[in-house]
């Protein structure tokens, strides 16, 4: 019982979230979707209580909560929406929220490039395909029949519970050792000092430049040059493969 008392705060939002996802799954039967929405809201609020920041940096806290809640809610709506077009749009929203989180994590370049790559390329292509394949635009029968939603949700949330529990345990161990320090009102929190990269051969960076293009570029094209080359090769091969796999015009397009 001690264990459940200690972790009740963790279990309740998980159960609620699981119920919400399960309830909101597309189904042939008509359900009051508001019930699922309420459960999800409750779960997120309870989780939010868990996430109270130690310091009183409200601007950053609020921003974090907004982005995190947007990402999670959009993700939930994305996997439960019966219309794939809407799902893709929800995914775009998830991407934007995640980019916000990137900004909070002192990664402005990443956030910009993610928006460009995902919102600008991937989601558009996905939407293209969806629209080509489902020109009627309405949800098809298979979009309304998820595969074993209960089993998948329960399994997924057990995994999430395990992850959160792990985090909690770890947080007790050295959760206090976060070296971050944010000036009040500063949008991007910066570390006090930079831990040297054991692999890096570049001179130590200025802590204030973390997340800047200079540091990132030096690491990327200095320490990880070969990886970059390999990644480029992978891209090339993927391009060739995509061209090879994609249907020929002689076979007729979609």
């Amino acid at each position: 019982m001690d264990w459940s008392k200690e972790n009740g705060l963790l279990i309740i939002p998980l159960v609620l979230g699981c119920f919400a996802v399960c309830w909101l799954m597309p189904s042939t039967r008509q359900r009051p979707r508001i019930l699922g929405g309420l459960a999800a809201l409750a779960a997120i609020l309870m989780m939010q209580a868990m996430l109270l920041p130690p310091a009183g940096d409200y601007v950053r806290s609020v921003l974090f909560f907004v982005f995190a809640a947007a990402a999670v809610i959009s993700a939930g709506l994305m996997i439960t929406d019966r219309n794939p077009v809407y799902a893709a749009l929800w995914f775009a929203l998830v991407t934007l929220a995640v980019c916000g989180l990137f900004l909070l994590n002192a990664a402005p370049f990443l956030s910009a490039s993610t928006i460009i790559v995902y919102a600008g390329a991937i989601i558009v292509t996905f939407l293209f395909v969806i629209m080509l394949a489902q020109q009627s635009g309405t949800a098809t029968s298979y979009d309304q029949q998820p595969i074993q939603p209960l089993m998948a949700s329960v399994g997924g949330f057990i995994l999430l519970g395990a992850l959160l529990f792990t985090l909690q345990e770890w947080g007790h161990i050295d959760g206090t050792s976060t070296s971050e320090h944010a000036e009040p009102g500063q949008f991007i929190a910066l570390p006090k000092e930079i831990e040297p990269n054991p692999l890096s051969q570049a001179p130590h960076d200025n802590p204030h430049e973390i997340g800047s293009l200079r540091v990132l570029g030096r690491s990327l094209f200095g320490d990880y040059l070969f990886s970059v080359e390999i990644a480029g090769t992978v891209l090339l091969i993927a391009t060739i493969g995509a061209i090879a796999i994609a249907p020929r015009r002689s076979q007729g397009t979609l």
């Binding site: 998948a152 399994g155 997924g156 057990i158 395990a162 345990e169």
Partner: peptide, 26 residues
């Protein structure tokens, strides 16, 4: 032959691994 079935089994395996690690940490 359903990929998702295989993925479900993988998830199950992940859960088992995590819980084992947790117990070891505890």
């Amino acid at each position: 032959g359903m990929v998702q079935n295989y993925a479900a089994v993988m998830t199950l395996g992940l859960v088992v691994c995590l819980i084992t690690v947790l117990r070891a940490l505890a």
